[in-house]
Design a protein around this nucleic acid. Structure first.
Lengths: 132, 132
DNA sequence: TTGAAGTCAAGAATCATTCTCAGCTAGGAG
DNA sequence: CTCCTAGCTGAGAATGATTCTTGACTTCAA
């Protein structure tokens, strides 16, 4: 346990972090790998995964494991919810206040010690609505 | 003959469905495969997957794709939420009413046509709390 | 009875993710 | 400045979940 919160910021790590932060949407590890490789063609897939998890552990970015496919990474580190397009798979941020009461209800019903929650809304995004 | 949501119920399909319905908790496809194989040693992994998805499509069971590991299958077909243990990975049902308002908020913020939502609470289950 | 459609087992293929390992690098001790 | 060690990296193999392919077997209805 030393001065946490700070990690050694190498060239590769900075490049990966930049890609996450400059992304217009939530990217998968694979997509991030592709983007980083444009600038650093020698970077390895493993390095991207290692770094993303490291950054997530240190709270610099946030990881959202989605079931249907790969995990996605988000520059936002505060708690928030998502809407998920069932057609094109796009993931969009949304802020939906859920009553603190809801957590209490869940805790009471199950005996769990709840530290986190997230709501996923599924539906059809505006783009895909037009395409129909 | 009725072309509703009825599917041809073969021996294997019935066995798989039975396992889902008799399970005390949410099982992964792999766990279900193991259980079914005790009764039908020749059944193939592929058959279990195909059947589970078929049953889910017809609304006979429900599939919950979880990010960190494999999909889990649930005999309940009505909408409900889950609490997820961060230690042992167990998944438990919970009913938490979320204001209809929340869906509206999400729809307004994103333009999505929302047809579904689910909240996942993460925490530590009672068993794992004791173990600490 | 017979053919088309539906099912099946087995295993290969795919995709995301993790692990291994040997070489490289940065930063502190001397 | 030079050397040492811990931490980092690239390359690719390994793992685990899931899907696809294929050829054989069943079922159903005419």
């Amino acid at each position: 346990m030393s001065s946490d919160n700070s990690i050694r910021m190498t060239t590769q790590r900075a490049a990966i972090l930049t890609e996450v932060q400059e992304a217009d949407k939530h990217l998968t590890a694979g997509e991030l790998f592709e983007r980083v490789r444009r600038k650093y063609p020698t970077i390895a897939y493993g390095t991207v995964y290692r770094t993303l998890h490291l950054l997530a552990e240190h709270g610099i970015i946030q990881e959202f494991p989605f079931g249907d496919q790969a995990s996605r990474f988000d520059k936002r580190t505060d708690r928030h919810d998502h809407v998920h397009c069932l057609i094109c798979g796009e993931l969009t941020d949304v802020d939906v206040p859920i009553a603190i009461l809801a957590r209490q209800v869940a805790a009471d019903q199950t005996g769990y010690d709840i530290c986190e929650h997230q709501t996923v809304f599924s539906g059809v995004c505006p783009k895909c609505q037009q395409m129909n």
